[in-house]
Amino acid sequence: CPFLCFSTQPICQAAYQNDLGQVWRWVKEDNHYVNVQDGFNGDTPLICACRRGHVKIVSFLLRRNANVNLRNQKERTCLHYAVKKRFTFFDYLLIILLMPVLLIGYFLMVSKTKQNEVLVRMLLDAGVQVNARDCYGCTALHYACKMKNQTLIPLLLEARADPMIKDKNGESSLDIAQRLKFSQIELMLRKAL
């Protein structure tokens, strides 16, 4: 769902669009909807909510025992998407427009970053497999390193993410940090070995 989420499951569409009321109605009707997988790409409501960073919906689904380790057709879990979550174009626009106004843009950026950190921590606390590999052999740590995400890497390492797991190209998270010359991240990864 890069720009639009085409879903065969209404609860997945509601989770993607941050419609907590609709998600709640589907789960209230039948709790099996919590882990239903979309026929289009295999996403669960939890994966859809993580793709967009909807913390309230993720929290609600976790309280309803959503399975954090279900994978979609790309073999990704909700953790892969939570780590890959980036600022949207609209977020960047707001940050740029509001930056001169008493640093509101800066605080918005910090708030969005903290929100993503909370999301990842919730998934780790719920028992997501931190070293799960997707169809490219990448773990969440691979993506965090590629994105130079210095706030999420320590969380992943604390949860026992393995910096030496190699993707299908034979590259580990440590290799990525070295190749991209992210010396602080490389240091963090080496300390975890």
Results as ranks from 00 to 15, higher is better:
Arg63Ala: 12
Leu97Gln: 09
Asp175Gln: 09
Ser7Arg: 07
Lys166Gln: 15
Leu70Ala: 07
Asn41Thr: 04
Trp24Tyr: 06
Arg51Lys: 07
Arg25Trp: 00
Thr44Val: 09
Ala82Trp: 05
Leu94Glu: 14
Gly170His: 15
Leu141Ala: 00
Arg121His: 14
Ile104Cys: 10
Glu186Ser: 05
Val101Thr: 11
Glu29Ala: 11
Lys114Thr: 15
Asp167Tyr: 04
Ala66Gln: 06
Val130Phe: 10
Pro154Met: 10
Glu171Gly: 10
Gly21Met: 05
Lys85His: 12
Asp91Ser: 02
Ile104Thr: 09
Tyr33Trp: 11
Asn169Trp: 01
Lys148Pro: 00
Leu103Val: 08
Pro163Trp: 04
Arg51Asn: 00
Phe107Gln: 15
Leu189Arg: 05
Asn65Trp: 09
Lys148Arg: 06
Asp38Gln: 11
His80Gly: 03
Asp30Ile: 08
Ala66Met: 08
Gln184Ala: 08
Lys84Cys: 10
Leu119Asn: 05
Arg71Gln: 11
Val36Glu: 08
Tyr143Phe: 10
His54Tyr: 12
Gly39Tyr: 12
Leu46Phe: 11
Tyr143Glu: 07
Cys12Met: 05
His32Phe: 09
Ser111Tyr: 12
Ile176Gln: 09
Asn72Phe: 02
Phe90Pro: 00
Val128Pro: 01
Lys191Thr: 06
Gln178His: 12
Ile153Trp: 08
Lys85Asn: 15
Leu94Gln: 11
Arg190Val: 14
Met147Cys: 00
Thr139Phe: 06
Arg160Gln: 10
Thr139Trp: 08
Leu4Asp: 07
Ser183Ala: 03
Ala177Ser: 09
Gln13Tyr: 06
Phe3His: 06
Ala161Cys: 05
Gly53Met: 04
Val110Phe: 15
Glu186Leu: 01
Val55Met: 02
Tyr81Ser: 08
Lys85Ser: 12
Leu79Val: 06
Val128Leu: 00
Trp26Ser: 02
Cys135Leu: 07
Gln115Ile: 00
Val23His: 01
Gly127Asn: 01
Asp30Phe: 05
Asn69Cys: 01
Cys145Ile: 05
Phe182His: 12
Thr77Arg: 07
Leu20Val: 00
Val68Met: 01
Leu156His: 04
Leu152Trp: 10
Val23Asp: 00
Arg86Ser: 13
Gln22Val: 13
Leu119Gly: 07
Asn67Leu: 06
Gly105Lys: 03
Pro163Cys: 06
Gln184Trp: 01
Asp38Val: 04
Lys114Cys: 14
Ile153Cys: 13
Asp167Thr: 03
Glu158Lys: 13
Leu174Val: 14
His80Phe: 13
Asn41Trp: 13
Pro154Ala: 03
Ala192Glu: 10
Pro2Gln: 06
Asp43Thr: 03
Asn72Tyr: 01
Ala132Trp: 01
Leu124Glu: 12
Arg86Lys: 14
Tyr92Lys: 09
Met164Cys: 14
Leu94Lys: 12
Gly127Cys: 04
Val120Tyr: 02
Tyr81Trp: 15
Gln9Val: 14
Phe3Met: 02
Gly105Cys: 15
Ala82Thr: 07
His80Glu: 08
Asn169Leu: 14
Cys135Met: 07
Ser7Met: 02
Leu61Tyr: 13
Met122Glu: 05
Asn31Glu: 13
Ser111Val: 11
